[in-house]
Design a protein around this nucleic acid. Structure first.
Length: 923
RNA sequence: GCCGGUGUGGCGAAAUGGCAGACGCACAGGACUUAAAAUCCUGGGGCUUUAAAAAGCCGUGUCGGUUCGAGUCCGACCACCGGCACCA
């Protein structure tokens, strides 16, 4: 495919359509210039800055760490074979504009880019074609990088990272070891080194200690049922399964017990929830995280099993302990481990049959498709601890083993699901809550007043639900049969995958004295653990990872064997923002100095004390709301507890860019044929127009449809800017030269002369007003991330300035500074031309200090003020800006079109909003 | 079902409680041109009255409220988009 930039530019040059301005000469010229100059290199503490670098020229020789920092981050892309789509540059343009703006304000800006390159698509492609994933990954990265570079983003490419680079994933593995070698201390609420773990006194042998230790690690091995996707040949995390299908590819997922690595994210549930208060994320995103964590407050209650050894008890979790008197039966999940104990001989057959039937159902069949409740009676009974009645124990698949305790007390009177079940199976339904509004109590699930809820020791009758909950919980606690509990929906993170293209675990398995397999961490010196080379990357049907095929790699000389699972794609993206801080450090994932400077805080923080900003601004799509963003927060907190980072949260402010839809307002997809290829747009209109259009479409966070006509609009605007600055005759000459010259030579741009109206004269008051209104609007809008209205402010400036017969150089120069962050190539070109024409010291626009607006210049002498009568606009009056309220009132009443509306009426009141409006209330 | 977001011209959109529709697209008219493209200028919410200038009325999803004044604040509802969902 001839998708080379130069080729496309020549092709577009030859097309009949006349171009607005020679962007195809300007854009590569400045991209090359920035590259050669390393213009956007961010400086770490202690680094010496070459005197020739524009940062040094602007800020002198003072060390970088004395400048305020600004860390502005994009979600790094997965370099797919399809190349960049128009959604990527939306966020990237926004952050680029802000990076350039912050540099102009004098900040030391860290704005890096990298590649999240481990993952399934590369591996599947490898299986299909037989190429090593490394090869395709490198090709894809090269394409992405070329496309991203052609947009002129001001990334510090010296910090580029690639998660598949052993120099990078060495530290992903290192962080895994930190998790492995830590435990969560509930007393301190923090991750602590595993060496500090206290052992219960009853453990005596080292084997017992080891087994205990292994159950406490933040990275642990579990045999619980997991989401297995046969089609992908791997297990998946809960977060990667949507409606019972794999997020990638949409293949069926079944539950199956497998020995897997888990990360103890649940220990951090409360902190992950609480700390959302300390960061500036969108309301909806925080809500999604809260939802996923799914905290609910309630009580655990023990129900003794009747007619059995009293040690048998069923523990349930309920958010409605106040309805305990209404619990008329119990339901266990079919997988619950007490089912076998409880089931009576008569019921064994039907229970087994049901368990068997359920186990064959996918999650989708168990939930979405199941309209009718199913279940069977176990034959066993439990004792309701408050009514002392025997209540039947059922099993049913509407009770999930993975939530709460895997068992419920059923209160059919006040729970929709229990009611449905009870009606189907003729189980007793009693009322224990009286609705406040007199509705039917059956199936009433909201708060009300407790009724029928008393035994000789306790009565809830007459109490509103919240008080009834408190009272019964306290009573249960006093009896030792229950306690207040907080339950989370969040499950521990399934962290291993049966894949080739991922980080190997730094873990080996050995046999202990008794011949049992146990795991052991490799020492740090063994890192990075490189994956073996394989001929066959295909998953195995048994679920054994493909790495197991590399026999020599798996077997170590001392007889131990390597862990053959690999880490999920999220591992690399969990901490990449930290590696950017110090990407070439081979002694640590990042130096403490770099971490303190870039993640630390020089500004004053607001409310709670623990807050430090971390990444100042993070921009990316919502699709990572509960995956990457939750996992990264979790890892960051562990690193924080262990003293490796200085902030509890990684990303202080986070903005989601909205999805860009196709021209037909539908999601872009190949099948719909509405996909816009950035390369095409770039070839036709140039990078500056592309960037500007993506920002002009509407607010960053909104979902919005693409319009190629809209690109033409901003492209015309850039053409107007060009013509505002350059001499038309000299441009015609350039065009003629271009038609004769074989290859486009950027040096030809030198022949373009500045427009003769641009002169070194003092600006008129009206010109200054136009300029300063623009400075004010653009500055304020950049602070508020309102790129679309900032651009319209610049359009207003140009629409005005184009009619000026004299264009004062100082005004035009400041306008270019405003334009710079948005359309950097064009602005640099004109900025340089301006300097050259007036023999000014050439200055890099990238580091020129941001213009300041002067409010005094915006003050008007006279004002046009609308006059309303009874809230309806009737006329406008012109008054002196200094006019008193009385004068304004008099002028308003005297206005020609106002008088007819006052005739025969008395003026009751007059509202005068200074400099804004007059409203006359008359009756 | 629960949670969140969004509803403004033909379209993308803009408006610290104070002139609704800035800016742009599309469209229409004009200038330039042999012509077209490009460019430049002008005009566009709806309805009614008028030959016209002009004037009046209506208008920000629907209904109601607060206010001198509501796209904006409050209450109820409707539609669309996104997330979660047999979560006890």
């Amino acid at each position: 495919m001839p998708c080379d930039g130069a080729f496309l530019r020549i092709a577009s040059l030859m097309s009949s359509e006349r171009k607005q301005y020679p962007f195809w000469l300007i854009e590569p010229k400045w991209q090359k210039f920035w590259d050669e100059q390393q213009a956007f290199r961010a400086w770490n503490p202690g680094e010496s800055i070459p005197a020739s670098h524009p940062f040094a020229q602007r800020h002198g020789h003072s060390p970088a760490q004395e400048r305020p920092k600004f860390y502005i981050l994009d979600m790094f892309p997965y370099p797919s074979g399809a190349g960049l789509h128009v959604g990527h540059p939306e966020g990237y343009t926004a952050t680029d504009i802000l990076s350039r703006y912050r540099r102009a304000l004098g900040f030391n800006v860290l704005h890096p880019m990298g590649w999240d390159a481990f993952g399934l698509p590369a591996e599947q492609y490898a299986i299909k074609t037989g190429q090593h994933p490394r090869t395709t990954t490198e090709q894809n990265i090269a394409t992405f990088k070329r496309q991203i570079k052609s947009l002129g983003f001001s990334y510090d490419w010296s910090r580029e990272i690639d998660t598949t680079d052993p120099k990078y994933f060495k530290w992903s593995q290192w962080i895994f070891l930190q998790l492995y070698n830590s435990w969560f201390n509930p007393a301190t609420g923090k991750a602590e080194p595993i060496e500090k773990l206290p052992y219960p006194p009853e453990l005596t042998t080292e084997n017992e200690n080891r087994a205990y230790r292994d159950t406490k690690r933040l990275a642990y091995v579990s045999d619980a049922p997991v989401n297995w996707c046969p089609e992908l040949g791997t297990v998946l995390a809960n977060e990667e399964v949507i409606d019972g299908k794999s997020e990638v590819g949409g293949y069926p997922v079944i539950r199956r017990p497998m020995r897997q690595w888990m990360l103890r994210i649940t220990a951090f549930a409360e902190r992950l929830l609480e700390d959302l208060e300390t960061i500036e994320w969108s309301h909806s995103l925080k809500e999604m995280q809260r939802n996923w964590i799914g905290r609910s407050e309630g009580a655990q209650v023990d129900f003794p099993v009747a007619d059995r050894n009293p040690n048998y008890k069923i523990t349930v979790f309920t958010t409605r302990p106040d309805t305990l008197f209404g619990a008329t039966y119990m339901v266990l999940s079919p997988e619950h481990n007490l089912v076998d104990e409880i089931t009576t001989p008569q019921q064994v057959q039907s229970v087994r049959a049901y368990q068997d039937e359920v186990s064959r159902k996918s999650d989708l069949e168990r939930t979405e498709l199941a309209k009718e409740k199913t279940g069977v009676f176990t034959g066993g009974y439990a004792i309701n601890p408050v009514t002392r009645q025997k209540i039947p124990i059922w099993i049913a698949d509407y009770v999930l083993i993975s939530y709460g305790t895997g068992a419920i007390m059923a209160v059919p009177g006040h729970d929709t699901r229990d009611l449905e079940f009870a009606q189907k199976f003729n189980l007793p339904i009693v009322q224990v809550v009286q609705p406040a509004g007199g509705e039917d109590w059956r199936g009433y699930v909201d708060d009300g007043i407790s009724v029928n809820s008393a035994n000789p020791e306790i009565s809830l009758n007459g109490l509103p639900t919240p008080e009834a909950k408190k009272k019964i919980t306290a009573w249960l606690e006093s009896k030792g049969v229950g306690e207040k509990t907080i339950n989370y929906k969040l499950r521990d993170w399934l962290f291993s995958r049966q894949r080739y293209w991922g980080e190997p675990f730094p873990i080996v398995w050995k046999k202990d004295q008794r011949g049992e397999l146990c795991h052991e961490a490799l020492p740090e010196s063994a890192l990075p653990v490189l994956p073996p080379s394989l001929d066959d990357y295909k998953p195995t049907p048994t679920g054994e990872p493909p790495l197991a095929r590399a026999k020599h790699w798996v077997q170590l000389p001392d007889g131990s064997i390597r862990e053959t699972n690999t880490m999920p794609q999220w591992a690399g993206s969990c901490w990449y923002y930290l590696r950017y801080l110090d990407p070439h450090n081979d002694q640590a994932f990042c130096s403490p100095e770099a971490e303190h400077y870039w993640m630390g805080n020089r500004r004053v923080t607001h409310h709670a004390s623990r807050i430090t900003p971390g990444v100042d601004l993070y921009v990316g799509g919502t699709e990572h709301a509960v995956l990457h963003l939750l996992y990264a927060r979790f890892w960051h907190k562990v690193l924080f507890d262990l003293g490796h980072v200085s902030t509890p949260e990684p990303f202080f402010k986070l903005v989601n860019q909205g999805l860009i839809l196709g021209e037909d307002s539908q999601k872009m997809s190949k099948s719909r044929g509405n996909v816009v290829n950035p390369d095409d747009i770039l070839a036709q209109y140039g990078a500056d127009a592309f960037r500007l259009y993506e920002m002009f479409m509407g607010p960053l966070e909104m979902v919005k449809p693409w319009s190629t006509k809209g690109v033409e609009g901003v492209y015309r605007f850039l053409g107007r800017v060009w013509r505002l600055f350059v001499d038309e005759a000299s441009e015609v000459e350039l065009e003629q030269q271009l038609t004769t010259s074989a290859s486009p030579d950027p040096n030809l741009l030198a022949s373009v002369r500045l427009h003769s109206s641009i002169q070194d004269v003092a600006p008129a008051a009206s010109q200054l007003k136009t300029l300063h209104a623009c400075i004010k609007k653009v500055t304020e809008d950049l602070e508020g991330l309102r790129f679309n209205t900032a651009i319209s402010a610049m359009m207003i400036f140009v629409n005005d300035a184009i009619s000026w017969s004299v264009r004062p150089r100082s005004v035009m120069k400041q306008f270019l500074q405003l334009l710079g962050p948005f359309a950097p190539h064009l602005a640099e070109e004109l900025f340089a031309k301006l300097a050259a024409t007036f023999n000014e010291q050439p200055e890099s626009l990238s580091y020129a200090s941001w213009p300041k607006f002067d409010p005094a210049l915006l003050v008007e002498d006279t004002l046009e003020i609308p006059v309303q009568v009874n809230g309806k606009l009737r006329d406008r009056i012109v008054v002196a800006a200094a006019a008193t309220e009385e004068q304004v009132q008099a002028a308003a009443c005297a206005a020609e079109k106002v008088r007819p509306f006052l005739e025969g009426k008395t003026v009751k009141k007059m509202i005068v909003v200074p400099k804004k409006l007059v409203n006359i209330v008359a009756a």
